[in-house]
């Protein structure tokens, strides 16, 4: 299973990025092969609007089955969920702990967006 995690850096000990739309990068982690690849998302950092939509598009097109991030806005949530990508909201933790939580099944699937859009 491939999971996309919003991150600040590839360092597994570094904390994840809590933002989805304006996350700097995504780590695409394969739970079977335990390998990861990096998706750059910096073009969305400065978008005036629609960052969530474009980030969701990036994630969906990697073929990820699930997303782990801090918060998602309504548009990103809609696009991800309608494309069959599961969304998990995590507390701010090091990336390796977030992955461990996911594998242990302790992360709860989000059933709605938890923040409004508009650049927050």
């Amino acid at each position: 299973m491939k999971i996309a995690i919003s991150i600040n850096s590839l360092d597994m000990d570094d904390k994840m990025d809590m933002r989805f739309g304006r996350a700097k990068k995504f780590m695409i982690y394969d739970t079977e092969t335990k390998t990861n690849e990096l998706i750059d998302n910096t073009q969305n950092l400065n978008a005036a609007q629609g960052a969530g939509i474009q980030s969701a598009q990036n994630v969906i097109n990697t073929g990820a089955d699930a997303v782990i991030t801090g918060h998602t806005g309504p548009k990103a949530y809609k696009l991800l969920s309608e494309s069959g990508v599961k969304i998990y909201h995590s507390e701010e933790k090091p990336v390796k702990d977030v992955i461990a939580d996911f594998i242990a099944g302790t992360l709860k699937e989000a059933d709605s967006a938890d923040v409004e859009g508009h650049w927050v």
């Binding site: 923040v115 409004e116 859009g117 508009h118 650049w119 927050v120």
Partner: peptide
């Protein structure tokens, strides 16, 4: 409008 929405969200 937009600026107000941006100033109060969250």
């Amino acid at each position: 409008g937009c600026p107000v929405i941006a100033s109060i969200t969250g």
